[in-house]
């Protein structure tokens, strides 16, 4: 190396490379070199420790700041995200819950909100969840009305309630008047009040099955149904005497047994068509479909008013 350096023709002592060929000739120099490398390694270790420490501290700070951030944004509930499978609205929800303005997000009691909403008869089930940073998400499933009922309590005027297929009696909110107006009334059922609501009606799934079938299969017949009476209805299994009496606008009263509604509706349709063909539908007092494959049709005489019975197969 020196040879090469000399070949370059050094002109000043400053051209001599002082960084090369430092052999430590003496123990003092070797000790100093050892100390130097020791300190170098030590300081490298310190630097590495500092970097690791800083990273660790940064991580801690980040975690802490994340939690601080949550605390910070949860101070106020800003939004209620409302979903339903029915007709209730977000505004109704707000009005119903009556949560105070600027309520701390974390102070909202989810269980209480759920219980409060489920206390409303129209609401079948509620899922409430917090969506951070500031949104309360409420998902509601509603009962669907199949019947309506007029209830008169003491001296108060009669009030209209709706009945779901599950037998829940409730005051409907938000329904269109036309839809409610098409629902048949339910009569002849005892209503028991529990607190502010009515006890669930037993056996309504059977009646709602009849209504659903009629609505789907024979809408022209169903459109004339005014009310259903449960005076002779017994929901228990094996109650052969159980009858559902439907008051109609065109063919008087139709009496259904509680078995095979589809077949009974077909028979009713056949009978009503025949009656209409013979222009006797206005004279029908009742049609009894509860007798297996037969139907008893009671007509009223136009002239004498005497009843005439026919049995059709």
């Amino acid at each position: 190396m020196e040879h090469r350096e000399d070949k370059k023709r050094l002109s000043s002592w400053r051209d001599i490379d002082q960084t090369k060929g430092h052999r430590s000739l003496t123990p003092i120099a070797r000790w100093k070199k050892l100390q130097y490398y020791g300190k170098l390694i030590g300081s490298a270790a310190i630097v590495v420790c500092c970097v690791l420490g800083a990273l660790w501290a940064l991580r801690i700070v980040q975690i802490k700041s994340r939690s601080i951030r949550v605390e910070g944004v949860t101070q106020i509930l800003k939004r209620i995200d409302f979903e339903t499978d029915g007709i209730l609205t977000g505004q109704w929800c707000k009005d119903f819950l009556k949560l105070p303005e600027s309520v701390p997000f974390m102070d909202v009691n989810l269980f209480q909100v759920k219980t409060q909403l489920e206390s409303f008869g129209q609401v079948r089930s509620v899922v409430v969840e917090r969506q951070f940073p500031d949104t309360l998400k409420i998902h509601i499933e509603e009962y669907r009305p199949v019947l309506r009922i007029a209830v008169k309590e003491d001296s108060k005027p009669a009030q209209l309630f709706l009945i779901s297929k599950e037998g829940i009696v409730y005051q409907g909110v938000g329904y269109q008047r036309e839809i409610i107006g098409k629902l048949p009334f339910l009569t002849g059922v005892p209503l028991n009040k529990v607190g502010n609501s009515f006890q669930r009606l037993e056996g309504m799934e059977i009646i709602s099955r009849l209504i659903s079938l009629a609505n789907i299969k024979k809408p022209h017949l169903y459109a004339n149904w005014k009310s259903l009476s449960c005076e002779q209805f017994d929901h228990r299994v094996g109650a052969e005497w159980s009858r559902i009496r439907v008051s109609t606008k065109d063919v008087g009263e139709v009496i259904f047994g509680t078995q095979d509604f589809s077949e009974q509706l077909d028979r009713l349709d056949f009978i009503v068509k025949n009656l209409k063909a013979s222009q006797k539908e206005g004279r029908v007092e009742y049609i009894d479909l509860s007798t297996d494959t037969q139907a008893a049709v009671q007509l009223t005489s136009v002239f004498t008013g005497k009843k005439q019975s026919q049995v059709r197969q």
């Binding site: 002592w13 001599i16 002082q18 052999r23 430590s24 120099a29 100093k32």
Partner: peptide, 8 residues
């Protein structure tokens, strides 16, 4: 130089 450089 070597003497001095040898001490670092």
């Amino acid at each position: 130089l070597r003497v001095i450089n040898g001490f670092g």
